[in-house]
């Protein structure tokens, strides 16, 4: 969208017809990359991300080796055709940051002490971007880790939320932001939890909201998270369902 729209929500409906607490359609597939030890594709609406996991395996370079546990290394990138204007290939400031927070979020659930000196490599690639890519990527990575048979405390689940405005400029909290809302909204927040112990493993905000607005958005996001978690479990188990 070239120019800032007059509103992102009107009459209770967002630009794509959703209500404030609605999330986009979620589709999850596991085992999409046969060469990898585990993999998953997660689609949140038009945002499509593939994650592949390799390892545990020998860690190079050697100076990164930790004698008592494994390193979780993540690499996030976007394909050049994932956005409208060609994305310059290769990691930049933004990609390095997302790789770092993804690795840290995953490290908090993986039982790294089971694999001293090794590395677990996670590659996250955005095929098509329509906002919330880091969270979609983190969800895909979490499923790919489970698919790879890597021991962990539980799954990481993420959802985004943000603040969008109506035609009078009044702000509302909305769940699972898409491109125009991410670009023009007053705030967008990436939020992920280690699902079963309810601990926050990733929280980033662009823009500003009041404490009340934040808590309202978080409450809605928690509902979306519950649904996302169920979909993730369904996708993982679906692979082994006996007909």
């Amino acid at each position: 969208m070239e120019t800032k729209p007059d509103y992102l929500i009107k009459g209770g409906k967002r630009l794509d017809g959703r209500k404030l607490a609605d999330w986009r359609e979620i589709s999850i597939k596991t085992g999409v990359i046969e060469n990898a030890d585990g993999s998953a594709q997660v689609d949140f609406g038009k945002t499509k991300v593939i994650a592949a996991v390799y390892g545990p395996r020998e860690l190079h370079p050697r100076h990164l080796v930790m004698s008592d546990r494994a390193l979780v290394r993540a690499k996030y990138d976007m394909l050049s055709f994932s956005v409208e204007d060609r994305k310059r290939p290769g990691p930049g400031r933004r990609e390095h940051e997302i790789s770092k927070v993804t690795a840290e979020a995953l490290s908090s659930v993986v039982l790294t002490e089971k694999f001293p000196r090794a590395v677990i490599d996670v590659f996250v690639t955005v095929i098509q971007a329509d906002a919330s890519t880091r969270i979609t990527g983190l969800n895909a990575a979490s499923i790919a880790l489970a698919d790879a048979g890597i021991p962990m405390k539980g799954l990481v689940v993420g959802v985004t939320f943000g603040k969008i405005y109506d035609e009078k400029g009044k702000g509302y909290m909305a769940v699972d932001v898409f491109k125009p809302e991410d670009q023009w909204g007053q705030a967008d927040i990436a939020y992920a939890k280690s699902y079963n112990d309810n601990k926050v493993v990733l929280l980033q905000m662009d823009g500003d909201v009041t404490k009340e607005e934040f808590l309202k958005g978080k409450e809605m996001a928690d509902k979306a998270m519950e649904y996302t978690y169920k979909e993730m479990v369904k996708a993982l188990k679906g692979k082994y369902e006996v007909d």
Partner: peptide, 24 residues
């Protein structure tokens, strides 16, 4: 007792374990 792996949970006597379906 929670699962640390994706797999088949099995209880024999008093011991609970998960048999992995994938992994190195």
């Amino acid at each position: 007792i929670r699962a640390a792996l994706m797999g088949l949970a099995q209880t024999r006597d008093r011991l609970v374990k998960v048999i992995p379906l994938s992994g190195r």
